[in-house]
Write a protein that binds this DNA or RNA. Structure first.
Length: 912
RNA sequence: GCGGAUAUGGUGUAAUUGGUAGCCACGUCAGACUUAGGAUCUGAUGCCGAGAGGCGUGGGGGUUCGAGUCCCUUUAUCCGCACCA
């Protein structure tokens, strides 16, 4: 019987579907395990061969865990709201719901062919009202809560109102946009609208007038993680800064908890580092500087209060609220012109020109609170409005940016820390002896910083403060294809809908572009009395892992019972590109729900593995310039040639299929070839997988040619999961050959089923148990490439063997990797239940002992011995030969260098 | 500029975590079978050398009986952040 992968893969896929083999329920009798893939955005292009990499890894792990006796939750769904579908709708008039539906069908079809063990009864789609009801619900909860810094958790906004009524802001320590100060009487005197205005300063979901990333081409604002190098991540359009009224989420309230929480997570260090940088915690001092001739005080933030005696000027951002006020009559024109100039520059230009020094004096002066010196105040765009207070004290001697500015404008540079060469550059290091600084002189920098924190506070000039680079997340998008906000307006006052009114469904529209007045598409909907913006892409993906636990519950996001059982994700697999977006928002969202008692774990994803990206491997042909002749790679130097991308699907092992090439495009129909050794060899390069480079390899094509099991194993065999690597179809034969060989183990040379009950030899048992140990350990360590290699070694060692005692455990061992062939062989061996219910084999140590190494130290250090043990030797017998380090030492002193020290496994380290 | 990662045959990679470098594959070469096939099987294959032998994990240095692995230094590539005070 031949290995007919097509037939048997279809057979088992439909059997799994009919039997609902992979459907799971809460089962208190078994330990749970939750394996999750980052759900895909269903784009029109379908899946290419790189997408399933992580899915295959998680599938192998799920099947393995299940086989080890765990109740495994392994769901899949779609992140279905988003920009591309809407952009497509604007161009074609096709409703995003329609194209999304089509794309999902295509994705599902492609995924099914690979044989994943998802519980599809739990599928979620973020664009469906039953799902986004809970996205809106969470938003309402955030609107109704504030973050209490004292208790370090979210609390109902009513508590805050009660506090205001009792004592005003006195004693309130809450996360907010601005520090406010008012008494109980002042609070009582406010109108409803004014009170709401104040509360917006504290709500976790709130509306505010802020600087946003505005993308004119997309017609919407974007969050920081959706902008890269001044361009939108989706589409690559320029982004400008603009002041607008927007919904935001107060993620900054959770900055410290997100930092602390990371200690307990099994994430890669590099990913944790990216999140730490993004949060950007820095400890410093807030200091108020008097302004000469004004009762205003300029508030700044500095991490180097020790350098305050070296301050020679101040700088405020062009967007600083006092800019025009600080500009004196004679400087007003210059300041205003500078502000105008800055406004015109896009974010991208600003980034590109970071080395250019620009700025202008306001004409006003500040007073150094420590030495009374008057220092000029400048405006410059090297100070950012969004960080700290938008104003700095400049210490040119010890900050390179201040140094460049001072040099450019000829300002004083006063050293206050000994070290460096100020003729050339500033001395930024946080070490050395403090000089020119009154009472700080002679101290070490770190000592001085700490003293200054106390000193600033003691003199009433400010206080020690922790600043985060993390910004509150902008939560509205001026787009159609997203969750509507369950918010109405009375005047300018936001009124939330009641929970019972959810979901607020997205209405149908005809035209997906902005209105003539520049309003979002929802403004076109007649009778739409709610917010016109919709929620951003990350809204729907922030809590989807919770919904999978209980996807059809209409009473709660997730029932307490389901949540207490499944708790959180044990293994999360996905791309690193979500490091600062989804993975931050999800943690924030989950922590918020945890504070409110809706979920039982504060961290959503215990262990996270980032699979690498699969790049494309392009192939080239070389056309002799001006002809329709194509020259093979090795001979191209002899001609003047032009390199042309050729479809990788008509190239095999870099050899071009000449007929397929002629048929590929009409202009090549009468192509001639200059061959080497009768073949046309193509050139190649590693590039991004994209249609324009003809290097997209479709998984369906591979499944068609080799079968899903081969695709699964080959993707794993390609290299370590975390590593990015090019897709290279050359080499897939090796894996396919392995599966065919595995298949043949069950049959004799005539093709008859030949599995028998003969007793296995020690050698065969040794091979089996070695393989079991290796494969199990490799799966646990996500080292799937080496486990595939272990299977191949096993087969090479086994040769021809039809023994049930060997084949059955091997088949179970293989089943997570190649489930279809394993199922088929399992049933051929006479089993009626599916193989995924079979217990995963465990190894027996007694078959593993083979040989031991010894490295005694001879006089010249060159002697090495190896001792072989018979297969039947036990670990105990080998241990008897071990000479401990102490004994070895004594023995070495006796200078008998040829004696052997034997150590199985671990080798002892000898000291001469 | 700051932070992180990586570097091993013609190619993808492996190495008991300091212990025989190159497992397993691809590719290549040779052979077998064969109504020449993109099938199957066997063998060889790091480099130099006829050989003995020598060299060899990006480069240089160090620790060690012993280094791909640890330390210092340097180069290249990739990723993240980037006027964050």
């Amino acid at each position: 019987m031949e290995y007919n992968f097509k037939e048997l893969e279809q057979k088992w896929q439909s059997r799994w579907r009919e039997d609902q083999t992979y459907k799971v329920e809460v089962d208190a009798s078994k330990p749970k395990f939750y394996v999750l893939d980052m759900f895909p955005y269903p784009s029109g292009a379908g899946l290419h061969v790189g997408h399933p990499l992580g899915y295959i890894a998680s599938d192998i792990y799920s099947r393995y865990k299940r086989s080890c006796g765990f109740n495994v939750l392994h769901p899949m769904g779609y992140d279905a709201f988003g920009l591309p579908a809407e952009q497509y709708a604007i161009q074609t008039g096709q409703h995003p719901a329609v194209t999304t539906e089509q794309n999902i069908a295509r994705y599902r079809e492609q995924m099914d062919k690979i044989g994943f063990c998802y519980d599809w009864s739990r599928e979620v789609r973020t664009c469906e009202p039953e799902y986004y009801k809970w996205t809106q619900w969470a938003f309402l909860k955030m609107f109704a809560h504030y973050y209490n810094n004292a208790t370090q958790k979210a609390e109902p906004i009513e508590n805050l109102v009660a506090a205001f009524e009792a004592n005003g802001t006195e004693g309130v320590d809450a996360a907010c946009s601005q520090q406010l100060k008012f008494s109980a009487a002042e609070w009582a005197a406010k109108s409803e609208a004014e009170k709401e205005q104040v509360l917006q300063n504290y709500r976790i979901a709130f509306r505010a007038d802020t600087m946003v990333n505005w993308c004119p081409q997309l017609g919407t604002v974007l969050a920081n993680d959706e902008v890269k190098d001044g361009l939108s991540v989706r589409g690559g359009y320029p982004v400008v800064q603009k002041r607008m009224k927007q919904w935001l989420l107060r993620v900054t309230a959770y900055a410290q908890r997100m930092l602390d929480g990371m200690d307990s997570l099994e994430w890669s260090d590099s990913l944790k580092e990216i999140q730490r940088n993004w949060i950007g915690r820095s400890v410093g001092a807030q200091v108020f500087f008097d302004i000469a001739g004004s009762d205003r005080k300029l508030e700044i933030f500095t991490t180097r209060p020790d350098t305050i005696f070296g301050v020679t000027f101040m700088v405020i951002a062009p967007e600083h609220e006092w800019v025009t006020e600080l500009a004196t009559a004679e400087n007003k024109a210059a300041v205003e012109e500078y502000i105008e100039q800055t406004k015109k520059r896009s974010e991208r230009e600003r980034i590109a020109e970071t080395k250019r020094v620009s700025g202008v004096a306001t004409g006003s002066y500040a007073i150094n609170p420590f030495n009374g010196k008057q220092i000029p105040i400048y405006v410059s765009d090297y100070v950012l409005a969004g960080y700290g207070t938008g104003a700095i004290m400049a210490v040119p001697a010890h900050d390179s940016r201040d140094y460049a500015f001072a040099r450019h404008f000829g300002l004083d540079i006063i050293p206050v820390v000994a070290g460096g060469n100020l003729e050339e550059s500033s001395y930024d290091a946080k070490e050395g002896e403090v000089i020119n600084s009154d009472f700080l002189n002679g101290m070490d920098v770190k000592e001085a910083i700490n003293l200054m924190f106390d000193e600033v506070e003691k003199r009433g000039l400010g206080k020690k403060l922790i600043n985060y680079r993390l910004r509150d997340a902008i939560f509205s998008r001026q787009r159609y294809w997203g969750e509507p906000f369950p918010i109405k307006y009375e005047g300018d006052v936001a009124k939330p809908l009641a929970e019972e009114q959810l979901p607020l469904e997205l209405p149908a529209v005809e035209n997906f572009g902005p209105t003539e007045q520049g309003e979002p598409p929802l403004a076109r909907v007649e009778g739409w009395e709610y917010e016109y913006s919709t929620m951003p892409g990350f809204a729907g993906s922030s809590a989807y892992y919770l919904r999978y636990m209980d996807p059809h519950n209409n009473e709660a996001l997730v029932s307490e019972e389901a949540n207490n059982y499944w708790r959180n994700v044990d293994l999360y697999i996905g791309g690193i590109e979500h490091a600062t977006g989804h993975l931050m928002y999800s943690r924030f969202w989950n922590m918020f729900l945890y504070d409110l008692g809706y979920v039982c774990e504060s961290e959503p994803f215990k262990k996270l593995v980032n699979q690498g990206m699969i790049q494309g491997r392009s192939n080239f042909v070389y056309r002799v310039v001006g002809t329709n002749k194509f020259v093979s790679l090795g001979l191209r130097k002899e001609y003047e040639t032009q390199e042309i991308h050729v479809d990788v699907n008509i190239v095999k092992n870099d050899i071009l299929d000449l007929d397929a090439f002629r048929a590929w495009r009409p202009e090549f129909a009468d192509a001639e070839f200059i061959l080497e050794d009768g073949k046309y060899v193509c050139g190649w390069a590693i590039e991004k997988m994209s249609k324009s480079m003809f290097n997209v390899v479709n998984p369906d094509y591979i499944v068609e040619q080799y079968g899903a099991d081969t695709l699964r194993m080959y993707e794993m065999f390609l290299g370590p999961l975390e590593q990015s690597k090019p897709w290279d179809t050359n080499g897939i034969d090796g894996v396919h050959k392995f599966l065919r060989k595995f298949w043949r183990l069950y049959f004799d040379r005539e093709g008859n089923l030949a599995i028998n009950d003969e007793k296995a030899t020690d050698k065969e048992l040794k091979t089996l148990h070695k393989t079991i140990k290796k494969v199990r350990e490799d799966i646990e360590h996500f080292s799937f490439n080496t486990s595939v290699a272990a299977f191949m070694i096993c087969l090479n060692e086994l040769g021809e063997c039809h023994k049930r005692e060997i084949l059955e455990p091997l088949t179970i061992l293989l089943s997570p990797f190649a489930p279809h062939i394993a199922e088929e062989l399992w049933s051929l061996a006479g089993h009626t239940s599916t193989i995924c219910d079979a217990a995963y084999p465990t190894h027996d140590e007694k078959y593993l002992v083979e040989s031991a190494f010894a490295y005694p130290v001879s006089i010249n250090g060159k002697v090495r011995f190896k001792k072989e043990y018979p297969l039947t030797a036990t670990a105990a017998e080998i241990s008897a030969d071990i000479v401990t380090t102490e004994e070895a030492k004594r023995w070495l002193e006796g200078a008998e260098p040829k004696k052997i020290i034997v150590v199985p496994g671990k080798i002892i380290n000898l000291v001469k």
